[in-house]
Design a protein around this nucleic acid. Structure first.
Lengths: 153, 153
DNA sequence: TGTGAAATTGGGGCAGC
DNA sequence: GCTGCCCCAATTTCACA
């Protein structure tokens, strides 16, 4: 369900995904509208769900979770029941920050944030202990070159 | 560079990455400290960079960027100069939201948000027009089962 | 849409443990 | 050092024109 948004909304969205702490006043100024109109627009964007949430982003390095791992999973069982069990199990592992069902060779792709390569073993065990998987293969990131939550609007 | 954080900081971090709009008062109440102490702690977390930023998260679906693509890139050239050119070029493509140098078979992994499978072609062309790459292979996500910015603290 | 008033929040001084 | 209390200014929220 896409919403109809105009150029002013785009300005607001761009500004807010770059910095969510800006005051309504400075936002309004950027967009060339009054504070009040700005408030109403932002509220509408929030209510429509276009702005999904306002959050603080934590630096994974500084938290000691600097190791990013991509985990490719293959499965034999493709039933709906298995998928549900599997999805629920994986979703509850907090180190799994992204989780997709894929087209092609790999059935599922996970992005995991762990303390280290060794620490990933803990997450791996949590994974295979919860559900029966055919094939798991992990690839480790050596360096993060870009990681943004800003979408092109 | 990991910072030393205590249980109170953990409470604040958990709360703020779940919802960055909470007032200092409600935060303080959660953490069992005074508003002012809370303000000082949050400020410290921001200054140390542990809280990297406060942002609005936009729903990619509602923006019409619902197609997630993972792009695996192999290269022949592994020189530092080539890497710099390559990294700078890729970073400036706004549809590329994540970008890692990897260990193993694949040299680089990109996560791209596009309008559709067809629309990815536009990003692909932008990619290969900017820099010489040995091998590019894209995998398309069919379904997003989890995507969070919340790290386990 | 805009004006303006009411309520909430942020920022900081100061004293005490 | 870190914490709590209180005050003032800024901001947000919402009435009504």
């Amino acid at each position: 369900m896409e919403e109809k948004i105009d150029d002013t909304d785009r300005i607001l969205l761009r500004a807010l995904q770059a910095d969510g702490t800006q005051s309504l006043e400075s936002l309004a100024e950027r967009a060339g509208i009054s504070t009040n109109t700005c408030w109403r627009r932002v509220k509408r964007l929030e209510e429509s769900g276009l702005i999904a949430r306002r959050v603080a982003l934590i630096d994974p390095e500084k938290l000691g979770l600097g190791q990013t791992i991509f985990v490719a999973i293959r499965t034999r069982d493709h039933s709906a029941a298995w998928l549900k069990r599997f999805a629920d199990a994986v979703r509850t592992i907090p180190e799994v920050v992204e989780f997709y069902r894929m087209a092609g060779e790999v059935d599922y792709l996970l992005k995991v944030q762990a303390r280290s390569v060794q620490d990933y073993d803990r997450v791996y065990k949590a994974l295979i202990s919860r559900v029966d998987i055919a094939d798991v293969s992990a690839t480790f990131a050596m360096e993060c070159l870009k990681n943004t939550t800003e979408l092109p609007v």
